[in-house]
Design a protein around this nucleic acid. Structure first.
Lengths: 174, 174
DNA sequence: TGAAGATAGGTTGTCAGACAGACGATAGGC
DNA sequence: GCCTATCGTCTGTCTGACAACCTATCTTCA
């Protein structure tokens, strides 16, 4: 198959080979664009992610929502506050557990998300403007798959890597 | 007009379709791994990126280094301080311009970077463990290309996108 | 030559976000 | 009725990003 075409730079460890830097670059740009697009949405991209999960998935509690998005519970509190104040979602008591809250989207929330998704998808296409069109979807798909695997396998720790110093042991010091 | 909406991604707007979230997830994991690996290197991944550019490229001045990495000059100051204290790089006066400094790698810096690159490459393979092996290189290549385009075309602003609110205009307010 | 502005690097202060920990309310086991 | 675990909330701390300012030096122009 011809998928090997796009990444020509072979073992050329020049700047392009810096994966972390590249990811950071793309993500930063994504943020710039999306935060601007979503400046009317409470908490911008963060509110967007939360709203998306609330709309598209049935998440039983706030805690489950936090786990799904891999964010801190304390963040959820005030973001949900503001999304609720904007009329996009509602916090309802959980029928079985009075400690917990169910978070459900309102109709307005669903509409807002749909519009936001349209605009964000368009912005993402811009962000990936450096890739030929058919590779953008490929890139998204790969990112999604990699992220899902990380999230699934990751309670944020994985003690399977032995660490040794990268510094040479202070060589011949004479 | 036919903008040809290339971003259809059918109805599968489930969680995987959240590009920004996916990128953030992968990058966060990358950071976790790499910061652990490089905890002996001053400023971890940041020092790593800087050291890599200093070693692999001829960058005339600190300012050029900052521009190349798209980071703030004020950050460079103390990271370079600490990399120099660790004996990995040297700050030399610029022969033509006494305001500027040339930053060059020491032999120890080159060795350290080589070892760090080996370990980081290995860690990256772990981070992308959710992808089949041949797609990992593809993903890196796509990320590198997208990032390079962003960096090249991006003085951090691009006023070509008209922003309109994602919120419905407070519908029937009566 | 000397003044004015531009540029390099460095320093400081401010701000937002991440994260840990404490807290009240409630559930579940005994 | 007690004891412990869990849910959501609140608070404080810590870190990194970023802007603003400063000094030294270069460049330009009169």
């Amino acid at each position: 198959m011809s998928v090997t075409d796009p990444c020509e730079l072979p073992a050329d460890r020049k700047r392009g080979s810096n994966f972390g830097w590249s990811l950071g670059m793309v993500l930063r740009r994504w943020h710039e664009r999306v935060e601007e697009l979503l400046k009317d949405l409470p908490h911008g991209s963060r509110g967007y992610h939360i709203l998306a999960v609330v709309v598209h998935e049935e998440v039983p509690t706030q805690g489950a929502l936090a786990a799904r998005l891999a964010i801190d519970r304390s963040v959820l509190t005030y973001v949900i506050d503001d999304l609720a104040n904007a009329g996009l979602i509602e916090r309802r008591p959980h029928p079985q557990d009075r400690r917990a809250r169910r978070v459900v989207a309102t109709e307005r929330g669903r509409q807002t998300l749909a519009e936001a998704e349209r605009q964000v998808a368009h912005a993402e296409d811009h962000v990936l403007g450096g890739l030929p069109e058919e590779q953008r979807g490929l890139f998204r798909g790969l990112a999604a798959r990699a992220a899902e695997a990380i999230h699934a396998a990751a309670p944020a720790t994985d003690p399977c890597v032995a660490v040794q110093s990268v510094l040479p042991p202070s060589e011949q010091s004479g």
